[in-house]
């Protein structure tokens, strides 16, 4: 097992681009597999979230070392903007709605965001201060 991971690490140092592709493919296959499973047993959880949980478990039990997936995972997270451009293009399907409700929608988003930010920051700050004094 250890020599396998050592070999993977050596490979990813020598062939960073190939390793990146292999890691992205591995994560994609893993996600699709978990998705199939979640659908098959009617889990109330999306397959990708199940896959995240299982991967976290594998990392925690050191079955999969961080180094084996680092490149691929960092690439997926860095290029996430690309992946939802098609979702943004769906605006073209809702132009009538956005013309009639757009201003109100933006109003809701702005006010709600101010509330979320203010409450979150105050809560975190309060607990942080309380814990510092408790010690």
């Amino acid at each position: 097992m250890n020599s396998l991971h050592a070999r993977i690490r050596l490979f990813s140092m020598r062939q960073p681009r190939l390793a990146l592709v292999a890691q992205v493919l591995a994560l994609t296959a893993f996600c699709l597999g978990c998705d199939r499973f979640a659908r098959a047993v009617h889990l109330p959880l999306p397959g990708s979230v199940l896959a995240l949980g299982v991967l976290l478990l594998l990392l925690a039990t050191r079955v999969v070392p961080l180094a084996d997936l680092r490149r691929g995972a960092d690439w997926l997270l860095a290029e996430m903007l690309l992946f939802f451009i098609p979702a943004v293009m769906a605006v073209s399907q809702h132009t009538a709605l956005l013309r009639s409700d757009g201003v109100r929608i933006v109003g809701v988003i702005l006010l709600s965001t101010v509330l979320v930010m203010t409450v979150t920051a105050f809560l975190v700050d309060a607990v942080w201060r309380w814990r510092r004094h408790a010690r």
């Binding site: 893993f30 996600c31 990708s48 896959a51 949980g53 997936l69 691929g72 995972a73 997926l76 997270l77």
Partner: peptide
């Protein structure tokens, strides 16, 4: 999907 998994 895989990007979500990468959040691990």
């Amino acid at each position: 999907g895989p990007a979500t998994v990468a959040f691990a």
